[in-house]
Write a protein that binds this DNA or RNA. Structure first.
Length: 586
RNA sequence: GGCCCCGUAGCUCAGUCGGAUAGAGCAGCUGCCUUCUAAGCAGCAGGUCAGAGGUUCGAAUCCUCUCGGGGUCACCA
């Protein structure tokens, strides 16, 4: 049940009827009509902008049209009061009984309350993390990982058919560097003195076990072999080990991808998909051989003016055409990435979401251009950029860890503070805003810590239900028992505020999903938790507002239905965020 | 220099695909409180939404320009 969608339908019907009565000719654009919760509580429950939006079509002044429409809306079921206000808003107050029905809906649908259908089963591919398999994940990767995972959860909850995907950059120069770094550790494992790790190779300790494993498996065999022989072997082993480590790191955050897609597989299979993609685009006229102007501004030292294979990205909104081949004849990363996105499209996805670090922002236009060229307008790409994370401890920047090769690993942070604080805090901020992550604050059990605050609200709600069962053993707190609760006895403003908040949950899910913004879930939960805690505290001063009324089991049952609703929505939202909803906190 | 993101209260940030008098938490000030579960509560004060134009019934939101911060800039991934 989404009250706003329900009333939007009713309002549109009323407008249509009014148009017919008034003899308004032509089609009305009803899509502009919004039925929203008003910002001010004094403005009632629903704000309707129809009169302002359609005044022109009705050849009437907004306020005048509003009056006429208001009269009609006043006849709708569940409507208690209709007022025209401001420039032509129609404010509707609903019968509390209408809102209270939401509690029944929550009891009936359980964890599915708020589940939306806007996705209509559309196949969405969310590509996230995609960290190079050259070392452990750092905190910045973690943000993208958590964001992508929560977004995937959110879209699934909104009715999309979601695939979670990791693009493994196992081709190119960096994994060769990884292989050389691992080879050094291999020699080390065999007793060679390797001294300092040379500049340009990965110095991290995490390659030592890889070297040892190679030594155990191959003995001294690889030492004598030329590069062409040992490098692919060592590279494959190192990539496998790195991916195992990355998967472990992700597992510590409860992140599991459906697909790990290998970049190398694009051109190493029976058909070279990169070549095929370039061929396709060439046939479609999107590729040519030509020269690029040198970059403006900062001069490039080794600029080489040469003819190269270029993608006409400028035809699709990019600033410059983009090279597909390097000077040594191999494909650019971009060329492979086009082939990869083509592969996603061929697998039937119509919405592609890429989650990248903000440092890849310059890459968005060309990828969007490529998808536009590939998808023929039928496929949308949304690139979500995650800004940097600044790691702090009690306000002070955290020192880098030598062991990991000069950065703080995601694993270190998760091990120190736990999965839930990491996930929640990473989602308690818009993805495109920088994030301060304070290791000391996120484990604090205080109001200032939103993780604790929201989780505690859930635990408190569950605790109340347990205490109810204890205080009033005859109370039937089963779903059918709660369903029979006389919710009309919930008349306090704090109670009704929570009820209305709960009723907004389905709408919020739809909007957050449509906007690809999981942080809205986190903020909603924080507000709901805040209202719950506030109401709880009012019980200190006003004992008749307490949830448990030992002398009035019927009223207690009504309040149990409310507490159940709060707990259910908190649990549902936390599940989207991938954060535990604890039964108790001790 | 081009492009992208950001700029909202002293601080950290929300702000509903354009809505009404721009919100929350922290810090500050005033009073109260020690718990049905352990985060104390209520109130006050705090704003040129970086700035200037524009679009329209209406702009923090959309467009243009300026200022400030960050990112990025063929042949890395």
């Amino acid at each position: 049940m989404n009250p706003f969608a329900l009333f939007a339908d009713r309002v549109r019907a009323a407008v249509t009827a009014l148009a017919a009565e008034s003899g308004v000719a032509g089609a009305l654009d009803l899509s502009k009509i919004a039925v929203e919760p008003p910002r001010e509580e004094a403005h009632g429950d629903l704000a309707v902008n129809a009169a302002m939006v359609l005044a022109r079509d009705f050849k009437a002044k907004p306020r005048e049209l509003a009056e006429r429409l208001a009269k009609k809306l006043g006849e709708l079921p569940d409507v208690k009061k209709v007022e025209v206000a401001g420039p032509g808003f129609i404010n509707i107050s609903l019968d509390p009984a209408f809102w209270l029905r939401v509690l029944g809906a929550i009891i009936d649908t359980g964890a599915d309350f708020g589940r939306a259908a806007i996705g209509k089963g559309e196949r969405v591919n969310v590509e996230y993390v995609s960290a190079n398999p050259t070392g452990p994940m750092h905190v910045g990767h973690g943000r993208g990982a958590v964001f992508g995972d929560a977004l995937a959860n959110l879209l699934a909850f909104a009715g999309y058919d979601v695939t979670r995907e990791y693009y493994v950059n196992d081709a190119g120069a960096q994994v060769d560097v990884l292989a050389r770094s691992a080879f050094l550790r291999y020699r080390e494992a065999l007793g060679d003195k390797i001294g300092e790790i040379p500049e340009g190779l990965y110095p991290g300790d995490y390659l030592i076990p890889v070297g040892k494993a190679l030594a155990e498996q191959h003995g001294r065999d690889l030492l004598q072999k030329p590069d062409e022989v040992w490098l692919p072997v060592v590279r494959a082993a190192a990539i496998d080990a790195m991916m195992d480590m990355i998967r472990d790191d992700l597992e510590s955050l409860a992140i599991r991808h459906d697909v790990f897609f290998s970049e190398r597989s694009l051109s190493s299979g029976a058909v070279d998909k990169v070549a095929a993609t370039i061929e396709d685009l060439r046939k479609a006229g999107h590729i040519y051989e030509g020269r690029l102007p040198p970059p403006k501004g900062a001069p490039v030292e080794d600029w080489e003016d040469r003819e190269q294979t270029l993608f006409r990205a400028t035809d699709f909104g990019d600033d410059v055409d983009r090279p597909l081949m390097k000077s040594d004849g191999s494909y650019t990363y971009f060329a492979a990435d086009i082939a990869y996105h083509r592969d996603k499209i061929e697998r039937g996805f119509t919405t592609l979401i890429d989650v990248w670090g903000a440092d890849h922002g310059g890459y968005v236009k060309r990828m969007s251009a490529a998808v536009a060229a590939l998808g023929g307008g039928k496929v949308t790409l949304d690139v979500k950029l995650c800004q940097l994370v600044r790691l702090l401890r009690a306000g002070e920047p955290v020192k880098m860890s030598k062991r990991a090769g000069d950065f703080v690993t995601l694993r270190e942070v998760v091990d120190e503070v736990g999965k839930d604080p990491v996930r929640f805090m990473m989602l308690f901020r818009k993805n495109d805003a920088t994030l301060d992550f304070d290791l000391a604050k996120v484990i604090e059990q205080s109001r200032e810590n939103p993780v604790f605050y929201v989780q505690y609200a859930h635990a408190r709600a569950k605790s109340v239900l347990r205490n109810m069962a204890e205080a009033l053993p005859g109370l039937d707190l089963s779903p059918s028992g709660l369903r029979s609760a006389p919710v009309e006895r919930l008349t306090d403003e704090g109670e009704l505020r929570m009820v209305k908040r709960l009723a907004q949950w389905p709408r919020l899910v739809e909007q957050a999903a449509a906007a690809h913004e999981p942080h809205r879930i986190a903020f909603f939960l924080h507000e709901l938790a805040s209202e719950f805690h506030t109401h709880w505290n009012r019980g200190n001063d006003l004992p008749y507002l307490r949830f448990i009324m030992p002398d009035d089991s019927i009223l207690t049952l009504a309040r149990a239905a409310l507490v159940h609703g709060v707990a259910a929505v908190l649990a549902s939202g936390l599940a989207i965020l991938g954060v535990r909803a604890p039964e108790e906190m001790r």
